Amino acid sequence: MEAAGEPIPLSALQHAVYCLRQAALIHLERLWAENVFTAEGAVLHAVADKGGGRHARGVRRVMSLPLASRRLNLAGVADVVEFPRVGGQETPFPIEYKRGKPKLHRADEVQLCAQGLCLEEMTGAPVPQGALFYAATKRRVVVPFDADLRALTEAAAADLARVLASGETPPPTPLKARCRACSLHDLCRPEAVARPARAWRDRMVAAEVGPR
């Protein structure tokens, strides 16, 4: 597990928003399993992971840029950060590559926003937005880093920090669509683990309120 005080990986926030139990299985219990979704994601990141920088249409672009935030105790690597000039000053614009298409949940947005918060702390410049590039649509989705998303991102970082500090993996809260897509489904066994957890909770409640 991450040692006390050791920075939390930026990618772990995406796991935490998707499923806090998944994040704990990966970052506490060190469990991992590939499926078609994780394999596609690995291929997609291969180009960005080469690192380096270049100019495209007059905009400086840096690939595989290391990021960190002491305030939130986060660290990781941005796939790409563009530095367009706005009013004579470079404004960081993080871009995260994702497989598939835009999701109904906000896990991808939180991971991207966390990159923006790191860039603000590192550069001292405001980072008002970034973009998610989805392989299925081959389009950028611009994500404004508004107050709600910033609050959600900081809450996710705090929740995950508490789980890692506790050393305990949360019980599952099965969500059929997300569980089916999760590469850790067979290791997590949400249905099997959830049933005894619910039974234990029901016994505890019954003991408190007594027979009806």
Rank of each mutant, 00 (worst) to 15 (best):
L74W: 13
A131I: 06
C118W: 09
Q129H: 10
V142F: 15
A136N: 11
Y97H: 02
R150L: 12
V77Q: 00
P126G: 03
K101L: 02
V127T: 11
E90I: 00
V81M: 03
G130M: 03
L104I: 07
P84W: 07
L149E: 07
E90P: 01
E109T: 02
L74E: 10
P102R: 07
Q115L: 01
H105E: 11
L117H: 11
Q115I: 01
C113R: 09
R106M: 05
P144E: 12
L119C: 04
R150A: 07
V86K: 05
F93Q: 05
M122I: 08
G116R: 06
G130F: 01
G87N: 10
D108F: 01
L119T: 05
D79V: 08
A114H: 06
Q129N: 08
R150C: 13
A136H: 14
R85F: 13
V143E: 13
I95G: 01
G88V: 02
V80P: 02
D146T: 15
P126L: 03
A147F: 11
A78W: 00
R85D: 08
E96V: 00
P144I: 13
V142R: 15
L132G: 04
D146L: 12
T91Y: 11
G100M: 00
L119V: 03
V127L: 07
E109H: 09
Y134S: 03
R139I: 03
C118D: 06
G130C: 04
L72S: 14
A147V: 14
G130N: 08
V110C: 05
L119M: 05
L117A: 06
V142N: 14
P126K: 04
R140P: 03
L104K: 14
H105D: 14
R140I: 01
R85E: 13
Y134K: 03
L74C: 09
D108T: 00
V80I: 14
D79Y: 08
V142P: 12
V80N: 05
A147M: 12
A107I: 00
E90L: 00
F83R: 08
L149Y: 12
C113P: 06
A78D: 00
N73G: 12
V110G: 05
A114T: 04
I95M: 04
G76D: 03
D148H: 15
K98C: 01
G88H: 01
P92S: 15
Y134E: 02
K101C: 01
